[in-house]
Amino acid sequence: MALALFLRATARELWPLVPPHQRSDKSIRDAPADLKTVGRVREELRLSDGRKLWCLTTAGRREAATLLPAGTKLAALRPAKEGPSTAYSEHALDVAAVAGLLARAGIGHLAAFTVMKAHLAQV
């Protein structure tokens, strides 16, 4: 569901969304690989520090929409053809991480958060 809301994330951003009693991040690192096997996510690229950047496929976005409350704004799909040069944004990862931490702290529900769609560059 987090990928449906925030476009893309690594295990680091998804970690705050797991149950607080879970001591290892192994399941969070394994979950995207399992979802990739069934065609719900794809690895967009591997960051320079070795982390995998994940995003939803069309099938994954469709399934996530059924798990979220009606009316939840979903992020647009990341077209595979855009390539690595447009795939990575530290700001986008920060937004996902902060929303996860807020939700974990009981400040709002994860589905209540939305992200901006685009930045316009000033010339």
Rank of each mutant, 00 (worst) to 15 (best):
L47D: 01
K52W: 10
K26D: 13
T10E: 07
A11E: 04
E13Q: 05
L14D: 01
R42S: 11
S89N: 11
R29W: 00
I107V: 14
Q122S: 03
W54G: 04
G106P: 00
A87D: 08
V98F: 00
R78I: 06
A65K: 15
V95H: 00
R29G: 03
E13R: 00
F6A: 07
S27P: 10
F113I: 02
G100I: 02
D30Y: 02
A76I: 06
S27F: 14
H109A: 15
P79G: 14
D49N: 04
P69Q: 11
K36A: 15
R51W: 09
R23M: 12
K26I: 07
Q22I: 14
K73V: 10
L3A: 10
P84L: 08
L47I: 02
C55A: 05
A80K: 04
R8K: 15
G50W: 00
K36Y: 12
W54D: 08
G83M: 08
T66C: 11
E63S: 10
R104G: 10
L3D: 09
I28S: 03
F113N: 06
R78F: 06
A59H: 05
L47F: 00
G108I: 03
H119G: 08
R23E: 10
L101I: 06
P20L: 10
I107F: 15
R42G: 10
L56I: 05
A80E: 12
L7F: 15
L3R: 00
V38W: 05
R104L: 05
M116W: 12
P69M: 13
P16V: 01
C55H: 03
F113L: 08
A9D: 04
L56T: 04
R104S: 08
A65V: 12
T66I: 08
V95N: 00
A65F: 04
D34C: 07
R23S: 07
D25T: 08
A112I: 03
A105M: 09
G100C: 02
K52I: 11
E82P: 00
G50T: 01
T114R: 09
